[in-house]
Protein backbone atom coordinates (compact mmCIF):
# COMPACT_ATOMS: atom_id res chain seq x y z
CA UNK A 1 0.00 0.00 0.00
CA UNK A 2 1.41 3.36 -1.02
CA UNK A 3 1.35 5.97 1.70
CA UNK A 4 0.25 9.30 0.18
CA UNK A 5 1.05 12.53 1.94
CA UNK A 6 -1.30 15.51 1.69
CA UNK A 7 0.55 18.64 0.56
CA UNK A 8 -0.70 22.21 0.67
CA UNK A 9 -0.52 24.20 -2.61
CA UNK A 10 2.48 26.29 -1.48
CA UNK A 11 4.34 23.44 0.22
CA UNK A 12 8.06 24.21 -0.16
CA UNK A 13 7.38 27.52 -1.97
CA UNK A 14 6.41 29.84 0.87
CA UNK A 15 7.10 31.79 3.01
CA UNK A 16 9.01 34.42 1.07
CA UNK A 17 10.43 37.49 2.77
CA UNK A 18 11.79 40.68 1.21
CA UNK A 19 12.44 43.76 3.29
CA UNK A 20 9.32 44.51 5.30
CA UNK A 21 7.19 42.20 3.18
CA UNK A 22 6.27 38.64 3.96
CA UNK A 23 4.24 36.24 1.81
CA UNK A 24 3.00 33.13 3.56
CA UNK A 25 0.50 30.38 2.93
CA UNK A 26 -2.91 30.86 4.51
CA UNK A 27 -4.08 28.09 6.82
CA UNK A 28 -6.18 25.57 4.86
CA UNK A 29 -9.88 26.37 5.25
CA UNK A 30 -13.17 25.12 3.92
CA UNK A 31 -14.13 27.19 0.86
CA UNK A 32 -17.54 26.95 -0.79
CA UNK A 33 -18.81 29.00 -3.72
CA UNK A 34 -22.38 30.25 -3.38
CA UNK A 35 -24.25 31.00 -6.61
CA UNK A 36 -27.80 32.18 -5.89
CA UNK A 37 -30.61 30.84 -8.05
CA UNK A 38 -32.39 33.44 -10.14
CA UNK A 39 -34.49 35.71 -7.93
CA UNK A 40 -33.24 34.15 -4.69
CA UNK A 41 -30.39 36.59 -4.00
CA UNK A 42 -32.13 38.30 -1.08
CA UNK A 43 -33.33 35.06 0.49
CA UNK A 44 -29.80 33.66 0.28
CA UNK A 45 -28.38 36.74 1.98
CA UNK A 46 -30.91 36.38 4.83
CA UNK A 47 -30.12 32.68 5.22
CA UNK A 48 -26.40 33.41 5.17
CA UNK A 49 -26.85 36.02 7.88
CA UNK A 50 -28.85 33.65 10.05
CA UNK A 51 -26.51 30.69 9.61
CA UNK A 52 -23.06 32.29 9.47
CA UNK A 53 -23.50 35.90 10.61
CA UNK A 54 -22.68 37.78 7.40
CA UNK A 55 -24.69 39.17 4.48
CA UNK A 56 -24.06 38.16 0.87
CA UNK A 57 -21.33 40.61 -0.22
CA UNK A 58 -21.97 43.32 -2.80
CA UNK A 59 -19.67 43.34 -5.86
CA UNK A 60 -16.05 44.14 -4.92
CA UNK A 61 -16.71 43.68 -1.20
CA UNK A 62 -16.10 41.09 1.50
CA UNK A 63 -18.25 40.54 4.58
CA UNK A 64 -17.74 38.62 7.82
CA UNK A 65 -14.48 38.33 9.74
CA UNK A 66 -11.45 36.10 10.23
CA UNK A 67 -12.63 32.51 10.41
CA UNK A 68 -16.01 33.11 8.74
CA UNK A 69 -15.80 35.31 5.72
CA UNK A 70 -17.80 35.79 2.52
CA UNK A 71 -15.79 37.22 -0.37
CA UNK A 72 -17.50 38.42 -3.56
CA UNK A 73 -16.21 36.08 -6.24
CA UNK A 74 -17.69 37.14 -9.57
CA UNK A 75 -21.01 37.75 -11.24
CA UNK A 76 -23.66 36.69 -8.68
CA UNK A 77 -21.20 34.51 -6.80
CA UNK A 78 -19.53 34.63 -3.40
CA UNK A 79 -16.99 32.41 -1.69
CA UNK A 80 -17.76 31.32 1.85
CA UNK A 81 -14.46 30.84 3.67
CA UNK A 82 -14.16 29.03 6.99
CA UNK A 83 -17.36 27.36 8.07
CA UNK A 84 -18.92 24.20 6.78
CA UNK A 85 -21.87 25.65 4.80
CA UNK A 86 -25.26 25.34 6.46
CA UNK A 87 -27.44 22.80 4.63
CA UNK A 88 -30.28 25.34 4.51
CA UNK A 89 -28.35 27.44 1.97
CA UNK A 90 -28.91 24.82 -0.74
CA UNK A 91 -32.52 25.97 -1.01
CA UNK A 92 -31.41 29.33 -2.43
CA UNK A 93 -28.07 28.71 -4.13
CA UNK A 94 -25.85 26.21 -5.86
CA UNK A 95 -23.02 25.29 -3.49
CA UNK A 96 -19.69 23.96 -4.72
CA UNK A 97 -16.77 22.85 -2.59
CA UNK A 98 -13.68 24.78 -3.75
CA UNK A 99 -11.39 24.03 -0.81
CA UNK A 100 -8.67 22.23 -2.77
CA UNK A 101 -9.01 24.25 -5.97
CA UNK A 102 -7.21 27.41 -4.90
CA UNK A 103 -3.79 28.43 -3.65
CA UNK A 104 -4.28 31.01 -0.92
CA UNK A 105 -1.51 33.30 0.28
CA UNK A 106 -1.32 36.18 2.69
CA UNK A 107 0.85 39.20 1.96
CA UNK A 108 1.80 41.39 4.91
CA UNK A 109 4.03 44.35 5.60
CA UNK A 110 4.57 47.94 4.63
CA UNK A 111 4.48 48.36 0.86
CA UNK A 112 2.20 45.37 0.26
CA UNK A 113 -0.09 47.37 -2.02
CA UNK A 114 2.93 48.64 -4.01
CA UNK A 115 4.10 45.06 -4.58
CA UNK A 116 0.66 43.95 -5.77
CA UNK A 117 0.31 47.04 -7.97
CA UNK A 118 3.28 45.76 -10.00
CA UNK A 119 1.19 42.79 -11.06
CA UNK A 120 -2.46 43.92 -11.04
CA UNK A 121 -4.02 46.67 -13.21
CA UNK A 122 -5.94 48.22 -10.32
CA UNK A 123 -5.72 51.26 -8.08
CA UNK A 124 -4.76 49.53 -4.83
CA UNK A 125 -3.98 52.66 -2.80
CA UNK A 126 -5.69 52.79 0.57
CA UNK A 127 -8.05 55.60 -0.48
CA UNK A 128 -9.44 53.61 -3.40
CA UNK A 129 -9.10 50.02 -2.19
CA UNK A 130 -9.97 49.93 1.48
CA UNK A 131 -10.13 47.23 4.13
CA UNK A 132 -12.92 44.83 3.18
CA UNK A 133 -12.64 45.60 -0.53
CA UNK A 134 -12.01 42.74 -2.91
CA UNK A 135 -11.54 42.30 -6.66
CA UNK A 136 -11.43 39.56 -9.22
CA UNK A 137 -8.60 40.73 -11.40
CA UNK A 138 -5.46 39.80 -13.26
CA UNK A 139 -2.30 39.22 -11.27
CA UNK A 140 0.71 38.71 -13.52
CA UNK A 141 -1.40 36.99 -16.23
CA UNK A 142 -3.24 34.84 -13.69
CA UNK A 143 -6.92 35.11 -12.84
CA UNK A 144 -6.89 36.06 -9.18
CA UNK A 145 -8.93 37.21 -6.21
CA UNK A 146 -7.44 40.01 -4.10
CA UNK A 147 -8.87 41.10 -0.76
CA UNK A 148 -7.56 43.74 1.61
CA UNK A 149 -7.97 42.11 5.03
CA UNK A 150 -6.57 45.09 6.93
CA UNK A 151 -4.25 48.04 6.32
CA UNK A 152 -1.17 46.10 5.15
CA UNK A 153 -2.55 42.58 4.98
CA UNK A 154 -3.88 40.99 1.80
CA UNK A 155 -5.44 37.69 0.88
CA UNK A 156 -4.37 36.50 -2.58
CA UNK A 157 -6.02 33.57 -4.35
CA UNK A 158 -5.09 31.92 -7.65
CA UNK A 159 -5.96 28.54 -9.15
CA UNK A 160 -4.01 25.87 -7.31
CA UNK A 161 -2.02 24.91 -10.41
CA UNK A 162 -0.55 28.45 -10.46
CA UNK A 163 0.97 28.28 -6.96
CA UNK A 164 4.56 28.14 -8.23
CA UNK A 165 3.97 30.96 -10.73
CA UNK A 166 2.41 33.14 -8.04
CA UNK A 167 5.33 32.53 -5.69
CA UNK A 168 7.75 33.47 -8.48
CA UNK A 169 5.87 36.61 -9.58
CA UNK A 170 5.37 37.79 -6.01
CA UNK A 171 9.03 37.23 -5.12
CA UNK A 172 10.09 39.50 -8.01
CA UNK A 173 7.55 42.17 -7.11
CA UNK A 174 8.37 42.07 -3.39
CA UNK A 175 12.11 42.25 -4.01
CA UNK A 176 11.68 45.22 -6.36
CA UNK A 177 9.67 47.12 -3.75
CA UNK A 178 12.10 46.20 -0.96
CA UNK A 179 15.14 47.21 -3.04
CA UNK A 180 13.69 50.69 -3.59
CA UNK A 181 12.41 51.16 -0.05
CA UNK A 182 15.77 52.41 1.24
CA UNK A 183 16.39 54.92 -1.58
Amino acid sequence: MIELTARTPFDGLLPIEAGALRLSEAAPARMTSLAPYRGRDKALSEALKAAHGMAFPAPNRATGREGARAVWFGQRMALLIGPEPDAGLTEFAALTDQSDAWAVARLEGEGAAEALARLAPLDLREGAFKRGHTARTELGHMHASLTRISGESWRIMVFRAFARTLAHEMREAMQSVAARAGV
Binding site: Q75, R136, T137, E138, H143
Partner: peptide, 8 residues
Protein backbone atom coordinates in the same frame (compact mmCIF):
# COMPACT_ATOMS: atom_id res chain seq x y z
CA UNK B 1 -15.94 38.74 -21.72
CA UNK B 2 -14.67 39.97 -18.34
CA UNK B 3 -12.34 37.01 -18.20
CA UNK B 4 -10.05 37.98 -15.32
CA UNK B 5 -12.85 39.73 -13.46
CA UNK B 6 -16.44 38.83 -12.69
CA UNK B 7 -16.82 36.49 -15.72
CA UNK B 8 -19.76 38.44 -17.14
Amino acid sequence: YHESGCAA
